[in-house]
Write a protein that binds this DNA or RNA. Structure first.
Lengths: 207, 207, 207, 207
DNA sequence: GATGAATGAGTTTTCATTCAT
DNA sequence: GATGAATGAAAACTCATTCAT
């Protein structure tokens, strides 16, 4: 935004920080939080261990910074997809497409989300600051809003609560994208968002 | 099955093993794999460390055995629900009901699946032996079979491939049940399977 | 006392503990608390580092155990010297003699007392558990009791409060013994307790 | 002495040095040598780390300079007290009074002497450069001179060697002053030097 | 077969010191 | 000369695993 105001010092600092986080992301996503040592991160980032600790006060701090940064990036992209003008169906299509792209472009980050973490709990956003969970919840509310407005405009039927539909849509996209992630050969990347959306859109039952 | 053929020795051994796994399940599900030591498990199970190592060659082996055992239990219950006689809709309802019950009755195990694990990957069955994944895949095939036969009998429309529908149904149930698990007050336990199934059964779109 | 009741196991354990404390005493008294690592202690005692930690939960715990043990030994010896029957002068002589012997026989321990310690404060008993300081204070009270009874029996003049005299006697003995400790050639070991006691007993002033 | 010969440069340098030492004194006396980092000293003195190292070649050097400077200050004051004209008793009284005042006015420095230090040894001047010890020894000789001349003039009895008496007087004052330092409520500051001196001056024994 | 004491590699973290700017 | 970012050796402590009893 206003990056040109940064001094050289500050720019360098940011670049270093980025390199450290990039190294950490690679390692964490590959082996999981507990199987990566600070030494390994320092080595991969080509800094001395002490330097790492100048940027992050401990291992957990580094991990949290990483998660927060990545999830911010995702939320922005996904929120944008929903909030740009368009009718509900368009929004959902844009959303699924954006999420697919984010997955495709950030495989290590995705793995990180699901890889071992501290008290990693259950679903996609687990094991993470309550702060981040809260943001995820809010995002899911935003998504629910799309279903809600669709219902009000009688585009959508009230087959479930809007929030449930948001949860369902997220879980289905996650499931499909992770199929692809784990075995791209057998489970092709869903180019067309309707592959996923039709499961919601169309009724399974005949009559 | 054929337990009466076991000698006293063997029966005792099995009982000991069960106690060890039970202790491990409690601890792992509470604190996560890396925050539990073999000593703690031994102590909780009231055995000496060395004895633990007679039963499991290392920590990972113990962990895998635990996961395998639990997932076997689940698969059996779920497969039974599907394979008992009935039409496709009945089978799906029985399946969702059985899965809910299994969740409700095995919270620690469920937590374990989603808690930190070695290289825990993404969706519900991840982070685990390929052996177990394979079994999960097979189970999902079985579930897909229900959709397939429904399509053949024209009970179901072909809104997606049968396997995709199996994946979708699993991800949605997981998502709903984990909402309940994390915050039972705000997200009530789904007594009626149709709460979940309707998302598949009914079409969202008007027309 | 009742050591014959100890099992072999327990006897071995105690022997090991003793060796660890002995190694620690040597090192601490030589280099000071902060300049000795747990590895060095383990190595000197010929145990693995982990074994050290089976006996003492951390470095401070080891240090405290050492101090406590040594000071117990001293207090016992010194208290005995005072409390055995005899008149006040005899008691003070026995006390100074006992203290000299304890110094002579426990040079490393003495050094330890005065070597660097955590928050080592000032005088001889400093830098140590308040528990130990309290014991030292009590001991000084006992010593003051000797002066007091001497005054009551009019053997001693009331040139200062009994407690002050106890403090003075202790500080003088410490000073002389540490002169000897630091430079035995120039400052001979005080064989005769009256070398020290006369400073209290006799008046410096003519008239 | 000849400070007006100093250039502005040199005067500034000295002022900086003083600030560094003052910061170090505060920190060391509060937390002890090992619990203070060079960074903390630099920060408290409001200089960069590198600048600190321009003045002192390492942490130990800084520490030694500090001790030396403080002890110089003390020795000067105490020597003056002894060497000003007057008879022996006056000199000793002036000495005890001066020492008390020095203690009272320099609590942090006093704490520093007794707080944890490298190889802090035993009595008051220990744990320090041999250079400083030597100076302390010399000072004690000066004090012994007072006792000696008192003996020659038959003011004092020869109850011990003059040097021993100097040692005894020092240890007693230290002991009393440190009692006050540690617990001013129970152990009042000795306003009257004779509180301390009478222990030497008067004989304890009747007869 | 059971035990649990012993092991030591490996982890996180600190901090005195250097040196390019 | 001053700065403070960078360094990496070294510290305390943990815990999976072994093996003598």
């Amino acid at each position: 935004m206003e990056e040109r105001k940064l001094s050289r010092r500050e720019r360098e600092r940011l670049a270093q920080r980025r390199e450290m986080l990039a190294a950490a992301l690679d390692l964490f996503s590959d082996k999981g939080y507990h199987n990566v040592s600070m030494h390994q991160i320092a080595e991969k980032a080509e800094f001395a261990i002490g330097t790492l600790y100048r940027f992050f006060k401990n291992k957990e701090d580094l991990y949290r910074a990483l998660i927060r940064e990545q999830s911010d990036k995702f939320h922005e992209a996904l929120t944008r997809a929903i909030e740009e003008p368009g009718d509900e169906v368009e929004k959902l299509r844009r959303y699924v497409r954006a999420k697919s792209e984010v997955f495709r472009a950030n495989v290590p980050t995705i793995r990180l989300y699901f890889a071992e973490t501290h008290g990693a709990r259950f679903n996609i956003m687990a094991g993470v600051d309550s702060e981040i969970r809260e943001r995820y919840r809010q995002f899911q509310q935003t998504l629910a809003g799309v279903f809600e407005s669709g219902m009000e405009r009688e585009r959508f039927q009230r087959i479930a609560t809007p929030y449930s539909l948001a949860v369902a849509l997220n879980s289905i996209t996650n499931a499909f994208l992770s199929l692809w992630l784990e075995d791209p050969e057998h489970h092709p990347y869903p180019e067309d968002p309707d592959t996923i959306l039709n499961i919601l859109f169309k009724g399974l039952m005949n009559e």
